[in-house]
Design a protein around this nucleic acid. Structure first.
Lengths: 228, 228
DNA sequence: TTTAAAGCAATAAATTTTTATCGATTTTTA
DNA sequence: TAAAAATCGATAAAAATTTATTGCTTTAAA
C-alpha cells in the first residue's frame, strides 16, 4: 500500500463497528414488536433467538448504547428502544430532501418506516415538468432549480439521491453547494463529496451478488448430493 | 452460546467472504466503464484508485474468480468482466417473479441494471384489482392467485418480495410452496424459509443507521472543533 | 433459607477480514 | 542489454469482528 492509498483509507474516522450499527435497526424493530405485545422486558437470549443471532453478540451490540440490563431479567424494553434511538440520533427529526421523483423516489417517500427513524422528507425535486407542482405521497415536488433556495431556507441536513446514475454527481454537487451535510445515495455511482459531508450509498446489486452467490452454491451442492 | 444457538449459526454454509462478494459489483461496474472507454487492461492499482480502495484488497477480491493477471500490466478487462459475471452466475439469465407491484416493486422493475446481472423478471403479482391485468415497465401484473401455477409452468427460481411487512411471510410461504428457490426480500421482516431455499434481505434501515451514525459523529466533531 | 437457573458484564479466545511485505515477472527506459 | 519501475501472487501480519468463557447478580424454586 502506497502513501496515496493510505490517505484514502484514513479519510474515514473510526467509530462504532459498522456491522453492529447495521444490526441496531433489527433490534429496534423486534423490540417494538415486543412493546406492541405488551411485554416489558427482554433478554439478549430472547432477542437473539427471535432474530436468529446469538446472545453474546446481541449483548455486545446493545452495550454500544450504554444500557444496563439486569441478570435473569434482561433489559427494559422502553428504555432500550429510546437508548437505541438516541444513539442513532433517531429520537429527533432531521429534515431531508429527495432528488429524483421517479419510481424509486416515490417508493422511499412512501415508506412510512423512515419517519420513525427521524427522517422527515420535506420536499422532492425533479426536472420533469409533469412532476413539478404535483405531490407524491403528500410530499411536494419542486423544480430542481429551487433546490438551493429550499435547502438554505429550511435548514435541510440530509439529501437523498434517487436519480439516474448519469446525473448523480451533478445532483450531489448541487446539494453540497446548497449546504446539505449528509447524502443517502441510491444510485450506483461513487460520489465524491468534500470532507465535511458524509455519504452512504445503498448498493442493491451488492445484495443481489450475495443472493446470487448463495444460489450458486446451493445449486452446486445439489449437483453433488442430489436435489432435496 | 448454547447448543440451540450453535445450530442456528451452523445453518449457513461457509463460502466466500461476504464483504468481498459485495464489492464484486463495484468492480464490475468500473470495469464496464473502462470497457466503454476502449481501455483493454486494468491493474488493481488503477481500479483501487478509482473506487477509493487499496490495491491488495482489490487483488484479493478478484482472485476469487480465478483470474490471472500479468505483472506490470494488470488484467484483461473483457476476461475479468466475464470471470466476475460467471463467478456470480450473472452470465446466464435466471427467471424471477416479483410480488408486490407497488412503488418499490415498480422501481425494481424499472431498474435496467438488474437485467445485466442475469435477473429476468418475468411477471409481477399483486392483489390489487386495479393493477392486475396491467403492465408495469412492460412486465405483466397477474393476480397473486396465479403465482403458483406461473412459477411451476415457467420454472421460476427467484422471488422478489416488495409487499408490506404484514404479508411478507405469507407471500414467502406461497413462493416456497410454488417451488421458488431463492428469495430477495425487500421487506424488513426476517423470513423463515426451509433449508433448501436461500434468502437475502435488503435492509434499507441498516444503511440509514450507518448514515445516521456518521451524521452524529460529524456533528459531535464539529461541536468540539467548530464548524468547517 | 438455601440452592439452582438465567442472564448480564467483562475478558479472553477464535475467526474473519484487511493490510503489509516480499519475491518473481513483465515491461519500459537508459 | 542492463537497470528500473510497476504489479502480480503468495504469504505473513495486523486489525476488526465474532464467539467463548468466567464470575457475579438477580430471581425463583426447593
Amino acid at each position: 500500500m502506497n502513501k496515496a492509498e493510505k490517505n484514502v483509507q484514513r479519510d474515514y474516522k473510526k467509530g462504532y463497528p459498522s456491522p453492529s450499527l447495521q444490526r441496531l435497526p433489527l433490534y429496534l424493530r423486534q423490540l417494538k414488536l415486543y412493546q406492541r405485545e405488551g411485554v416489558e422486558k427482554a433478554s439478549c437470549t430472547r432477542i437473539a433467538q427471535d432474530l436468529g443471532l446469538i446472545s453474546v453478540q446481541v449483548r455486545k451490540d446493545l452495550s454500544m448504547t450504554g444500557i444496563a440490563g439486569r441478570p435473569k431479567v434482561g433489559y427494559n424494553i422502553d428504555e432500550l428502544i429510546s437508548r437505541i434511538e438516541s444513539f442513532l440520533g433517531w429520537d429527533k427529526q432531521r429534515k431531508a430532501v429527495l432528488v429524483g421523483a421517479g419510481a424509486l423516489g416515490g417508493a422511499i417517500l412512501g415508506y412510512a418506516g423512515f419517519v420513525e427513524h427521524g427522517l422527515s422528507i420535506c420536499a422532492a425535486f425533479d426536472v420533469d415538468e409533469n412532476k413539478i407542482g404535483t405531490s407524491i405521497r403528500s410530499c411536494p415536488v419542486y423544480s430542481l432549480d429551487e433546490l438551493e433556495r429550499f435547502v438554505e431556507q429550511n435548514q435541510i441536513v440530509i439529501g437523498i439521491i434517487t436519480v439516474p446514475q448519469s446525473v448523480a454527481q451533478f445532483v450531489t454537487d448541487k446539494m453540497v453547494k446548497a449546504g446539505i451535510r449528509a447524502i443517502w445515495n441510491y444510485s450506483p455511482v461513487r460520489l465524491s463529496v468534500p470532507s465535511n459531508v458524509v455519504c452512504e450509498t445503498v448498493q442493491l446489486s451488492s445484495s443481489f451478488a450475495v443472493l446470487s452467490s448463495k444460489v450458486k452454491s446451493m445449486l452446486a451442492e445439489e449437483r453433488k448430493t442430489g436435489p432435496a
